Simulated assay, not measured.
Amino acid sequence: MLAEAITALAAAGGTAVVQAAGTDVWTEFRQRVARWFGRGNVQRERTELDRLDQTAAALEAAEGQQAERVRLRQEASWEAWFIALLEGLNDNQREQAAAELRTLLVEYSPQGGVSAGQYGIAAGRDVNVRAEQGSVAAALLQGDVNMSTPTMPDPSQG
């Protein structure tokens, strides 16, 4: 498996852990992630359950601007743990573990994910829309929309 594919899969895993923490799917998702990491080792599975609980607690305790830093730090940590496990396996085990992780991530991906038409954009997080040179900008999103007043064009621009 290519290093880029491992990194992308691990990043998706890290993001999924952080996004699932504190949601209705968390209890089952954390069990499945711990089992995936444990690979049949009950003690390792317990260790991962503890680590997942620590992640959920850190995310819940974070407030304000600190919350984003904690979220990013947790995603990066989980990405590193996913990479370490995948890279520590032989080729056949790695392919099997990667397939299992992909299945797990699909099963627990948020319903109604993002999509866009031909001239649209898709984003799983905040989008800032700004009009330029007196034009109008609009957005329809499920989440925050931040619109700023357009700046006046330089007189030399007409």
Rank of each mutant, 00 (worst) to 15 (best):
F29M: 10
L101F: 04
G134E: 06
V25K: 15
Q31T: 02
L85Q: 12
D144S: 12
G120D: 15
V106W: 05
E79P: 07
V17P: 06
D24E: 13
L9R: 08
Y119I: 01
N128G: 02
Y108C: 07
L72D: 06
Q96G: 01
T23K: 15
N146Y: 08
P153C: 09
S148W: 00
G64V: 06
R73D: 14
Y108V: 02
R35A: 13
V25R: 14
V25I: 13
I83R: 14
R39F: 14
A116E: 09
A56M: 07
Q31F: 11
G14D: 07
V106N: 04
R30Q: 15
E63I: 10
L49Y: 00
I83A: 13
L140K: 04
D144Y: 05
A84C: 03
W26T: 08
A98G: 13
T149R: 01
V18D: 01
A138S: 10
D126L: 03
E28P: 08
E95K: 13
G22P: 10
M147P: 00
M152K: 02
R32L: 08
A84M: 07
E100I: 12
A97N: 07
A20C: 08
M152E: 10
G113M: 09
T55Q: 05
Q65H: 13
D24S: 09
Q19G: 11
R32H: 14
M152C: 02
A5D: 04
W81S: 05
G120Q: 09
L49Q: 10
V33I: 14
Q74C: 07
A20R: 14
A16R: 14
G38Q: 13
V33P: 00
E68C: 00
A131F: 01
M147N: 02
W26C: 09
L104Q: 04
A76E: 12
G120Y: 08
A84L: 10
A62K: 04
A21V: 05
D126T: 06
L9A: 05
L2R: 03
I121Q: 09
Q43M: 14
G22A: 03
A138C: 00
N128A: 06
Q111N: 05
V145Q: 04
A58C: 03
E75G: 04
A67K: 13
L89G: 10
G134Q: 06
D144R: 15
T15R: 12
V114C: 00
T103K: 14
Q19N: 12
R130Q: 10
T15H: 11
T7N: 11
G112W: 03
A5T: 08
R71H: 02
A67F: 10
G124F: 08
R94P: 00
G112N: 12
T55A: 09
A62R: 05
V18M: 03
Q54L: 06
V25D: 09
T23R: 13
V106C: 00
N146M: 05
S135I: 01
E79A: 09
L9C: 02
A56R: 10
E95L: 11
V17Y: 03
R69L: 12
F37H: 11
P153Y: 07
T47F: 06
G112Y: 05
A123C: 07
Q157L: 10
Q157C: 00
Q74I: 05
R44N: 09
A16E: 05
Q93M: 12
F37C: 03
A139E: 07
R94T: 14
A76S: 13
V129E: 09
A11Y: 01
A57Q: 07
W36F: 12
A131C: 03
A67Q: 15
